[in-house]
Simulated scan of single mutants.
Amino acid sequence: MTESESPRVTRPTMVVLGVQDGTPPYRLVEVAGELVGKAHSVLDVIEIARQLGLDDIDLDDPDVVRWVGGDKFTWTPWWPRHPPKPEPRA
């Protein structure tokens, strides 16, 4: 197999991990395998990138940003919150 026939495997510059349950929910952001911040919206992802010198980052390019557990529009957990169980009556 020649190099041109082999699949292209690249590591994206930024990885936005799945939504974490919190008030408000958030997503952790990694760059080069290191945790660099917490984002509550896509605007936070853009701000983190800007602070790291990635001013013209393309959030839709999978070679640049990998979205785990949803896309750039996913900012709430997909699983429902469980309400507290009522205490048994005596």
Rank of each mutant, 00 (worst) to 15 (best):
H82K: 10
S4P: 02
H40S: 09
P24C: 05
T76R: 15
V15H: 04
S6G: 11
T13D: 00
D71W: 07
V68I: 10
V19M: 05
K38S: 07
A90L: 08
D21I: 14
P12Y: 02
W75T: 08
P77E: 02
D71A: 07
T13G: 00
V42Q: 06
W79M: 11
P25A: 04
S4R: 06
E3I: 14
T74K: 09
R8H: 14
R11Q: 09
R81C: 13
V68Q: 08
V42K: 14
T76P: 06
G33H: 02
V36I: 07
P12N: 01
K38N: 11
W75F: 06
G70I: 08
T10S: 10
Q51T: 15
V29K: 01
V45N: 02
V31E: 02
P24T: 02
P86D: 04
P62T: 03
V65A: 01
W78P: 06
D58F: 02
V36P: 01
D61T: 04
V31Q: 06
V65E: 00
D55R: 12
L52Q: 06
D56F: 06
D63Y: 10
V31Y: 04
R50N: 09
Q51P: 05
I48Y: 05
T2R: 09
W67I: 03
T13E: 02
V36Q: 02
V64Y: 03
W75R: 08
M1S: 13
E47K: 13
E47I: 13
D60R: 12
T74F: 08
A32W: 14
